[in-house]
Design a protein around this nucleic acid. Sequence first.
DNA 1: TTGAAAGCGGTACCAT
DNA 2: ATGGTACCGCTTTCAA
Lengths: 340, 340
Amino acid sequence: MSQSPRQSAERPVPTSADVARLAGVSRATVSYVLNNTAAVRISEPTRRRVREAAEELGYVPHAAARSLRAGHSRMVLLPSAHVPVGPLYSRFFDELQWALRRLDYTVVQYGSLGLEGDEAARAWAELRPVAVVSLGEVQLTPRGVKILKRSGAKAVITVGPQRIEGTHALVMDQARVGRVAVAHLVERGRRRIGVVVPEEPGLELFSGPRLEGARQAVEDTDATVVPLPLRYEEESATELAARWRESGLDGVFAYNDEYAMLLMRALQDAGVSVPDETAIVGSDDLLLGRLLRPRLSTVRIDMVLGEELAELVDRAVRDPEAVPSTRDLMASRVVPRESS
Amino acid sequence: MSQSPRQSAERPVPTSADVARLAGVSRATVSYVLNNTAAVRISEPTRRRVREAAEELGYVPHAAARSLRAGHSRMVLLPSAHVPVGPLYSRFFDELQWALRRLDYTVVQYGSLGLEGDEAARAWAELRPVAVVSLGEVQLTPRGVKILKRSGAKAVITVGPQRIEGTHALVMDQARVGRVAVAHLVERGRRRIGVVVPEEPGLELFSGPRLEGARQAVEDTDATVVPLPLRYEEESATELAARWRESGLDGVFAYNDEYAMLLMRALQDAGVSVPDETAIVGSDDLLLGRLLRPRLSTVRIDMVLGEELAELVDRAVRDPEAVPSTRDLMASRVVPRESS
DNA sequence: TTGAAAGCGGTACCAT
DNA sequence: ATGGTACCGCTTTCAA
């Protein structure tokens, strides 16, 4: 009989001790060779023997054992609940990962779907990450932050609409999005302005501040703002459009381009002309907005580069004593097109 | 002076030994209490003292130490390069995470942007995951699979258009998407059929098989298929539309609904009427397709539930000896609307 | 140039 | 009902 067809079923996982044995050296030497330790000189023949042994056994070092011994890791943990959608976010995310890798961090997204608050923080803390970058999918509490710091995290960074005690915060000024959108509508002479508030869960953190910003925009004017709950479904939009004329709205900020497309279609089908009767503004400046007729006015959001965030992480890790900073992450401005 | 305002800056991270000391018990007892070890009975007062000590110190166990001792972990590693976009994918992903959590696995996405082949497999293997579920963002090689198995991974599962040696494969039958779309067009009487091939990188694994499927659909018919390279930009679509009449195409499978919307708009702007002159079919059945005029025909793709995949992972982990299976992950069928 | 051994933070067996 | 202790895999002094 030759070897079994079953793939290495029960062969134990090789350790550095196995490599040492096969190469006829000590475990210390194996470590020196495989890590290219500069402080110690190993003869070339020995190096070769060690390398070959490692190769032959298919040896891969055990990260947990290593970082246990070292007393620290270079893991940056990103809690992830829902996969964030949208090109803006996804580009930002890719950049962040890439930049952190270049700074020699290991980026790990920890699936936190169904975890809440402190329970989540505990779960993350068990991995002893050197830094946590929370993109706001899971709500972090001040207590949670304390738990993480206590477990050795040098930096906790939140990216989102809110500020949290003890963290470096990259605030996303969502209110500004609503403010510039509605200010634009007011400037165009609109007076009764609707603001779409998506009913989908998980969007409150964005829609709330945007609505608030919209309200700020009409202060000291004779314009008014009306919240418009809407689900991302045709029926919901149709209902809303059916009551449109009686509502007397002459302008609407539709939360983003996708809700805007949904609503615009429903309005047009209901015979409400855009922009004559009602002006519409979306946000995110998606390609699809340019494909609509009339072309959709939108709020363009410029997010900070992932690279910048990566550098902030790195600085925070190197100097954990530094005072937590708060920086604004977004600039937003209206891109007027035909719908307003 | 009260305590420094600096947050616990240099206080060392508490260990179970610290908890033991504070509670006046041994480390063993701490472990028993905090893990609710059934095999051993600890008095209620002791339990309380231990819990209080742990609470007071903000103790969180060290996952690496634990799994080092245990000799295994319940980590399922998902390599992630680009955040996959689209609602289909993202729903599937959420379900998978959720279901794996319920089966008591820890889901970790490992940022692999910029890693290639075996190098990537090595990096993953260092974490000693019990299973790896590769969604195809990073190309896994048979050697990579061997490295992972050798490092203790009980199961390697690939989800994607391709099959790889030694893995459980959930094949996504992308060819079928192209096949049913084009068969539908042929059935509707179209004869010169374009197939959009996105030029964006990373989509080849999908667009290739879809084009191939389209070709299969015209075998034994008098219809022909023409590949149409397209970037997801207005200019690219405009160019394509400008050459439309001379190309003599009377039908097109547009890769997905978003490319379909882009192309349809460009065609309409160029005066090509849809569906009279040219029929269009997209795929993914996005809401936006229903909002277009004419309403967009599409291929609806039913992905397997994330739960099913989670169960497959679990089975594979429990019985690593089992023969790797290959299952089809998608069903797809045409949803005819007005554009074809 | 290489090896022996301590120790990182837990867990679980064996005593007491 | 609890405590002592060996050990998981690796790195890093210290000695030889």
